[in-house]
């Protein structure tokens, strides 16, 4: 029990630093890819500090509560994950968190927000099956839904789950809100709708969302690591390397692809889920 609380605490304290730093690195690399110098890698922290000090403009007070709901559930998701609890619970908690975000954005009755939140919902609908199939894959590969148990497997899960891993990487782009799937919350100024879901968020309310995204990104990269780790110590090093490569690839894709329409996203994500994820677990079922 003590260990669980300790792990949770470490996540709560450390994740924003890691997440913020990752976000800064993301911006730096993106800038270099675009031939710019880019901001300092600590820029995200400065941004949030400034946001926190700004006046809060809101449309209604419901909004603030729902954004808090989003943050709390994202943190809770990460705590469950890094404390080594059940992976289905983690996914459920994540879904609940995103729903809070969608509702916060819908409650303001604004055209851009409404569009953004509907798109966010579509994104959620498209990646949810693959997320569940990943959990199924972990269970089939290691015999447990428990994350602590998954980490102690003799053979890392990716050996059994190459297809599921590929599928997961595909939805990771959607989940991280990277182009070509940055439908709901793009930060590229040339898109037809920029920052859709957070249009009406400002000041410290917006800062909460930024912080929540830091937590979320750390947790998502944690799942990437979960595919690699086993009970060998060196598997952790490999996991770290894979996470970094994944992170770099996401940035590369973000900067080299154009936004697709929602229907293309839904179709391709579901098709990939069915083909690589589905076939992988079918084969796993046969060879088991």
């Amino acid at each position: 029990m003590l260990e669980v609380i300790l792990r949770g605490l470490v996540f709560i304290i450390a994740a924003p630093f890691v997440g913020g730093l990752l976000s800064g690195i993301d911006r730096k690399i993106t800038a270099r890819m675009q031939g710019r110098r880019g901001p300092s890698i600590f820029q995200s922290f400065y941004d949030v500090r400034k946001l926190l000090s700004k006046q809060v403009l809101i449309v209604n007070s419901l909004q603030h509560m729902l954004v808090w709901g989003f943050l709390i559930f994202v943190v809770f998701t990460g705590v469950l994950f890094f404390a080594g609890e059940d992976i289905l619970l983690v996914i459920f908690s994540l879904t609940t968190a995103v729903m809070f975000m969608v509702m916060a954005s819908y409650s303001v009755n604004s055209p851009f927000s409404a569009m953004g939140s509907q798109r966010e919902l579509i994104q959620m609908m498209s990646y949810e099956p693959m997320l569940l199939i990943s959990a199924v894959g972990f269970y089939m590969a290691t015999g447990t839904f428990n994350i602590k148990g998954i980490m102690q497997a003799n053979i890392p899960a990716i050996v059994y789950l190459p297809g599921v891993f590929a599928g997961f990487l595909y939805i990771l782009t959607v989940k991280l809100g990277k182009s070509p799937f940055d439908l709901s919350n793009s930060h590229h100024a040339h898109q037809e709708m920029v920052k859709g879901i957070t249009t009406e968020m400002s000041g410290s309310v917006f800062a909460l969302i930024e912080i929540a995204h830091w937590y979320e990104n750390v947790f998502l990269l944690g799942i990437v690591g979960l595919f690699i780790v086993s009970n060998q110590w060196w598997s952790w090093i490999i996991a770290g390397i894979v996470i970094l490569i994944t992170f770099f690839l996401e940035i590369l894709i973000d900067n080299t692809s154009a936004r697709v329409k929602w229907d293309v996203m839904l179709k391709t994500v579901w098709a990939i889920t069915l083909v690589v994820g589905g076939i992988n677990i079918f084969i796993l079922d046969i060879i088991r």
Partner: peptide
């Protein structure tokens, strides 16, 4: 079940969101 739970989530959430949208 994996696909069905995603679609189920979609239609309930958008209804929920409609209720709390404040003009």
């Amino acid at each position: 079940i994996a696909f069905g739970s995603a679609t189920t989530m979609f239609y309930w959430t958008k209804w929920l969101a409609k209720l709390i949208s404040v003009s």
